[in-house]
């Protein structure tokens, strides 16, 4: 953001931005090879019983429009590049919510030859929702906790940038780490 504005104006503008961000975060859902359980539960949060839209959250099709990336699944090797690409297409500030045991640590699939054992090994994660799958209420709980944390000043973002650069470098260097498995 340009810093031509004087300080009080800038502060007021930041407040408005934060207010807008908390009241209408748009989300994108990415399935990186999960079993569908979490995805259906995320979809269920949008339906009348849970109605996530009352928090201003809208599920978006395009990563360019989204602020929050809701990611499920243990990240299969084929989906990894797509996940990084989707993440990079989102504009700052962006937040990642990992939903389900396999997105957190690989869960039941940890050690399988074709998975990355969790979203955190590929992109930085801001909120974790354990469960297999979490109940829709637990997903709402996690997103509300994430939105609550946004009211505090955002942490330094260089950290996240480095992780993603490292991940991209790793791909360029060794694109197919799973080649030993036929």
């Amino acid at each position: 953001m340009s810093s031509n504005l004087s300080k009080p104006w800038q502060a007021a503008l930041d407040q408005i931005t934060t207010w807008a961000r908390i009241n209408s975060p748009w989300a994108i859902h990415f399935n990186s090879g999960s079993c569908n359980g979490c995805d259906i539960e995320i979809l269920a949060t949008l339906t009348p019983r849970y109605d996530l839209e009352r928090f201003g959250i809208k599920l978006q099709g395009s990563p360019r429009h989204a602020d929050v990336l809701i990611c499920t699944g243990p990240v299969s090797r084929q989906a990894r590049e797509r996940l990084i690409r989707t993440y990079e297409q989102m504009h700052e500030p962006k937040f990642v919510v990992a939903v389900g045991a396999c997105a957190l640590s690989g869960g039941i699939f940890q050690g399988c030859y074709n998975v990355m054992d969790g979203v955190e090994n590929v992109i930085p994660v801001d909120a974790y929702i354990p469960g297999c799958p979490p109940r829709p209420e637990a997903i709402i709980d996690g997103i509300v906790k994430l939105l609550g944390s946004l009211q505090e000043p955002p942490a330094d973002e260089t950290d996240a940038g480095e992780t993603i650069a490292a991940a991209a470098g790793e791909i360029a260097a060794a694109p197919h780490a799973g080649s030993e498995h036929g």
Binding site: N31, G33, G73, G111, C112, Y113, H181
Partner: peptide, 21 residues
């Protein structure tokens, strides 16, 4: 193939009880 996780191979290193889940 985006959701290919290698489950069939993984069953060969887990017990029957674990494989059930």
């Amino acid at each position: 193939g985006y959701a290919h996780r290698g489950i069939e191979k993984a069953t060969e290193s887990r017990t029957y009880v674990q494989n059930l889940y």
